[in-house]
Simulated scan of single mutants.
Amino acid sequence: MSRQASKDTAAELAVRRLLHAAGLRYRVEFPVPGMPRRRIDVAFTSVKVAVLIDGCFWHGCPEHATQPKANAEWWRQKLDRNMARDRETTEHLEAQGWVVLRFWEHVPAGEVATTVRATVDGERLKRIAPKHGLRKSGQATDE
């Protein structure tokens, strides 16, 4: 297990490259506020968008997860704890006002990057619109 990458996985790097090329700037391995030893893979702190890219084996992908035969009970408990921790982290971040985007590692990087960019752009618009008298469509109000 110690040889398994826990950060900078191929899926994460591919998504980060696309986000950076699109002009988005973000924090990597950002600590989850109020939860020691937990990290956000890609964080847009100014708009509170957290992007987590989960490995199929470690996080229990319904399509690709496998069950080890050796020491099966120990592995089942380990993977169940991982999934419970994922839910707890998501709930904690959402309670703190973050938008949490979780993706499986098998989702194409381009698809992930498109969703992330749309979400970040939407959150930025929500934050600046009231300050500038804008409606959701981006039009100024006549009032």
Results as ranks from 00 to 15, higher is better:
T90L: 05
A43M: 06
T9F: 10
T114Y: 07
W98E: 01
N82G: 08
R124I: 05
E63F: 08
V49R: 00
G122M: 03
F57Y: 14
T119G: 08
A109F: 03
A22K: 01
E73G: 06
K48N: 04
A14C: 07
L13G: 04
L125R: 15
G23E: 03
D8C: 02
E73Y: 12
Q139F: 13
V120P: 09
L134H: 12
E91H: 14
L52A: 04
S46Y: 07
A14V: 04
K126W: 09
Y26L: 00
F103I: 01
L101D: 11
P108T: 05
P62M: 05
M1S: 14
Q67D: 11
R135V: 10
M83S: 11
E143M: 05
R37W: 12
K78R: 07
A65Q: 14
R16L: 01
A10R: 09
A5K: 15
D54I: 02
R37F: 10
W74A: 13
F44P: 11
A50K: 01
R39V: 04
R16A: 00
E88R: 11
M83P: 09
K7I: 01
G110P: 13
G133C: 14
G23D: 02
L52P: 02
D86C: 08
R25K: 13
I53R: 02
C61R: 02
D80F: 07
E91Y: 08
Q4Y: 09
W104V: 03
